[in-house]
Every structure is written in structure tokens, then in C-alpha cells.
Write a protein that binds this DNA or RNA. Structure first.
Length: 465
RNA sequence: GGCGUCGUGGCCAAGUGGUAAGGCAAGGGUCUGCAAAACCCUCAUUCACGGGUUCAAAUCCCGUCGACGCCUCCA
């Protein structure tokens, strides 16, 4: 039985989809005006794992992730670069799509964009005005009337009175209530705009997600996700808009991932403590990024530093060791170890599923993989044949795949491979003659070039590092 | 100030009532010409602190201290 922690109720609840066997999941994507960083990667990986696990459990998942391609920051950046805002955002959409692919994140079922949802957004706002939940200000802005929503604040646990008391809230000139938020913003001179019943303008930040949800998944969805920095105001306002518009409960389960921490602080563009996804992937594999996420709890802050990255690197190597082939000269396993291996397969499956069912407890799930890898390696060291190893390695590969780990070795340039093979062949002859200094020199020099050798009784293996 | 999450070994971290998973690092060993990898052993009488409930608490309750996130754009 799959259980999920729901931000809305602050409880871990049994997952019950609206429609048996199907999951409608909407995850807030990124605002595309800049290179994405590893914090965005964390969020994407978290929901990728959730999606993969639900599919493993047999659900048909419709996974929608939007792109915010109309926004103040995009307009500012485009102005600074002298570029058309929609061209700029389109460029970064392609860029982020590539990042996600590099991270082995499955493509979402669909990726709606604000700029392509304009008619529905306008219709949505009109509907809210008709029902008294919104009003147009004289300057062409349209605001949501928070006092018209009886349970406004239920997701973030805030009350309007408390928020009004907050010192940093300033009363907008055009607003009835300081917490009212913009559904539509009148265009400033020279800004990109769309025609609307309220004049030229563009949508506010929150309305896009309500509209795209409706367009892609309908009035009610199972899961709504995003970073926990979106709980307020973004998700709170989405609920207010959608539920005021449809009169129905919007999302049943709200899932929020924790923030990636660099130097004890949230990684964010405004703090300037950024590691880009591309920068990270130039030094480490996608599996390493994923391992960092898997080692922790998706809801908790994720520590990101040299030490945790190095540990993740080693963890990935350790898991890969389980997939090394059996020795060609293996004589076969003793009966007791063979049955222990069979038992280890079942234990791993059980522990893995129990862990993941418990609100996607990946740290526990990964522990099940470490234990299985130990059993496999022990079997290999005890003369297991390839056939004897295979069932365990198949299970291992399958479970790792559910977490989105590829466990693939790094590929070098194909041309180099045959020369490396040749060098190793020569080195084998050198070793037969016990010319250790020379053979070690070859090994050391290759290491410097990124090729690491391992001498085994069945000969020498190598890989790119 | 308000709302929320959380404080577990040198580090990352699971465990939410029954006597501390897993990984990294470290030390010892097996194997190896030497490495590397793998495997074996060691590594928290204790879970921020102070009270309380209970036969039993890291786990529940109260308080204190501390960290982080949100309250402004944010994955």
C-alpha cells in the first residue's frame, strides 16, 4: 500500500487515485530565463522517481510539467540582451529539456507553456470575475479577491489576519485587500502583451498553472508537486483560483521537495551560490546527481558539498560493482551460497517496495540495493557462474532502473578503445616477464589519461574514469 | 513577529513505542608481484538539552536552545 505525505493535511496518507489505476500529476516546472542549477535538478529527479515508482507499481501516470515562458524576469533579461522574450524563453526551454535528458529524467507526458494557453487563461479570469472572485482595477490589472475564498491559506497554514500584520506586505494602490494577487497585469509601454477584455497585458504568475492544469488534466488531479518554496504564495493561490472557479477540490495530494543546500543555505539565483546542471555533469555522471537525491529524504534539505558529492560518487561505483560479470573460469557456487543469493533477491525486492511505499523512502530503498550488491559480489567471489549470477543481477538492474539509475560505465571515444586494448595486451606480456616497474608505469600513465586498470586472475579489465 | 520542517556516530542518512538500517571516511585482515576492486572484522550503552507519560521512548507530551524554508521572485 503506497503512502504519501500530503502537505495539505500534514499527514502521511494512503494513496487513492481519483480513477483506479491512473494518476494525474502536475509538477511546477521552471521559469525559463537562465541556466538551470542542481537545485532544479533535484526537484526534477524527485518527481521522476515518484513517477517511475508509480509506473512500476502499475499506475498509468499522466505527468504534466509546465514552462513559465512569460514573466517579469524573462522580460527584463530579454530587454538586457535585446532579444525577443519568447525567443529567449524558447531557447531556455530547449536548454532545460536537454538538461533533463542528460539527467535521465523521463520526459513529462506534456509540457504546456503559458504563451500557448492565453485564451484559456483569459476565459478562466472572466469566470472568476463573473463569480465575484476577482475584479478589474481601473489601470487594467485584474486581482483575485482573497476575502471571497473562505478557506484561503489552508495549504500554507496562514490566516489572512496574520499575513496582513506582516511588515513587508505593502498595499497595492489598486487592490481591495493587501493579499489580493494579480491574475492579469496591464502591459507597461514597450512590453510584450496579449489583448484581453481588460486591455493589453499578460497573466500573473499563478493563474497559468490553474489554467494549464484544467487544460491538460481537468478540474481535479491526484498529485500536485513542486519545491517547498512554492507552497506560499504560488500553490496557495493556485488552489484559491482553481477551487473558486470549479467549486471542486483541486488536488488531492500535495507533494513538496526540500531545498538543496549549498554551504548551509538554499541554492538560489539571488544568493548567487549556484552550480549549473551542465557544470555538474561535466564533472560527474547523472547517476551521481541522482544518488545525492536518493541518499536523503525528498522532503528534507539536501546537503550538497564536496564531501557529499564524493560519497555519492563512491556509492555509484559500489552499485556498479554488482553488475561486473562472473569470472569465465568460475566453477559454480556451493549450495549454501546459491540459496543465500536466491533469498537475497527476495529480501531486496520486499525491502525495496516497503521502503518506496513508505512515502518514497529512497534512502531505505537504496540500502536494499547495497545489500543485494553485497550478496552478488560475495557470490562472484565464491565461483558463481554467469548463469547463477544473472537472476540477482537482473533484479538489481530492474530496481536500480526504478530509481532511474543507469549504472552505465562512462564511454570514451571509440577510436581509443582498440589502442587501449593493445596496450593492455602488451602489458600482459610485460607482466608475464615480471617487469613490474614497466607494467606499473603503463598503469599509472593510463590512469592519468582517465583509464583505470584492474588486474584479476582472469586478466586485466579497464574502464574510463 | 507569524506559519512550517527539523535536530541520530568524523560526514551523508534510515528508523516514529520494544531496545540504533545503509553508505562515505578511518583502522585491521583476506586476495594481489604491487595496486585497484571485492569480501571479512572494528567503528553511537546512545539519538540537541531539561522535564513528563509508559513495564518499555531516538520514537508520544510539555518546555528550552539551535538550524533551515516560507511570509518578496524562487525547484
Amino acid at each position: 500500500m503506497l503512502k504519501i505525505y500530503n502537505t495539505l493535511t500534514r499527514k502521511t496518507e494512503e494513496f487513492q487515485p481519483l480513477e483506479p489505476g491512473k494518476v494525474k500529476m502536475y509538477v511546477c516546472g521552471v521559469t525559463v530565463y537562465n541556466d538551470a542549477h542542481v537545485g532544479h535538478a533535484m526537484s526534477a529527479i524527485v518527481f521522476d522517481i515518484i513517477r517511475r515508482y508509480m509506473e512500476y507499481r502499475g499506475y498509468e501516470v499522466r505527468h504534466v510539467m509546465n514552462y513559465t515562458d512569460v514573466d517579469d524576469k524573462i522580460i527584463n533579461r530579454a530587454n538586457a540582451l535585446g532579444e525577443d522574450p519568447l525567443k529567449l524563453s524558447q531557447r531556455y526551454i530547449e536548454d532545460y529539456t536537454n538538461d533533463l535528458k542528460s539527467l535521465n529524467v523521463l520526459p513529462a507526458t506534456s509540457n504546456p507553456q503559458v504563451s500557448k494557453t492565453m485564451p484559456l487563461i483569459i476565459k478562466f479570469i472572466e469566470g472568476l470575475i463573473e463569480k465575484g472572485h476577482a475584479y478589474a482595477a481601473p489601470n487594467g490589472d485584474v486581482y483575485f479577491r482573497v476575502t471571497s475564498d473562505a478557506d484561503y491559506g489552508k495549504l500554507s497554514g496562514r490566516k489572512l489576519e496574520d499575513m496582513q500584520a506582516g511588515a513587508r506586505i505593502e498595499v497595492g494602490e489598486q487592490k481591495e485587500h493587501p493579499m489580493d494577487f494579480a491574475l492579469w497585469k496591464a502591459a507597461k509601454p514597450g512590453e510584450i502583451f496579449w489583448e484581453s477584455p481588460w486591455g493589453k497585458g499578460r497573466p500573473g504568475w499563478h493563474i497559468e498553472c490553474s489554467a494549464m492544469n484544467l487544460a491538460e488534466l481537468g478540474e481535479q488531479i491526484d498529485i500536485h508537486g513542486g519545491g517547498n518554496d512554492l507552497i506560499f504564495p504560488h500553490h496557495e493561490n493556485e488552489i484559491a483560483q482553481s477551487e473558486s472557479y470549479t467549486g471542486k477540490e483541486f488536488a488531492r495530494y500535495w507533494i513538496h521537495n526540500g531545498m538543496l543546500q549549498l554551504g548551509g543555505e538554499k541554492m538560489s539565483k539571488s544568493l548567487g551560490n549556484i552550480v549549473n546542471i551542465k557544470e555538474f555533469l561535466s564533472k560527474h555522471s547523472a547517476d551521481v546527481m541522482r544518488m545525492l537525491v536518493l541518499n536523503g529524504t525528498y522532503r528534507a534539505p539536501l546537503m550538497f558539498n564536496d564531501e557529499t558529492v564524493a560519497a555519492a560518487e563512491r556509492n555509484v561505483e559500489r552499485l556498479k560493482s554488482a553488475l561486473k560479470p562472473a569470472s569465465p573460469s568460475a566453477k559454480g557456487l556451493p549450495a549454501d551460497i546459491l540459496s543465500a543469493l536466491a533469498a537475497a533477491i527476495e529480501t531486496a525486492k520486499t525491502n525495496f517496495t516497503e521502503a518506496m511505499d513508505n512515502d518514497f523512502n529512497t534512502a531505505s530503498a537504496i540500502a536494499a540495493l547495497f545489500e543485494l550488491s553485497k550478496s552478488i559480489n560475495t557470490a562472484r567471489d565464491n565461483e558463481a557462474t554467469a548463469d547463477q549470477l544473472q537472476p540477482a543481477q537482473d533484479t538489481f538492474r530492474e530496481l536500480a532502473g526504478v530509481l532511474g539509475l543507469t549504472l552505465e560505465e562512462k564511454k570514451g571515444s571509440g577510436d581509443a578503445n582498440k589502442f587501449i586494448d593493445l596496450l593492455i595486451e602488451v602489458r600482459s606480456e610485460v607482466r608475464k616477464q615480471k617487469l613490474w616497474a614497466l607494467s606499473d608505469l603503463i598503469r599509472d600513465k593510463l590512469k592519468e589519461l582517465g583509464v583505470s586498470l584492474e588486474d584479476t586472475k582472469d586478466g586485466t579489465t579497464w574502464k574510463w574514469t
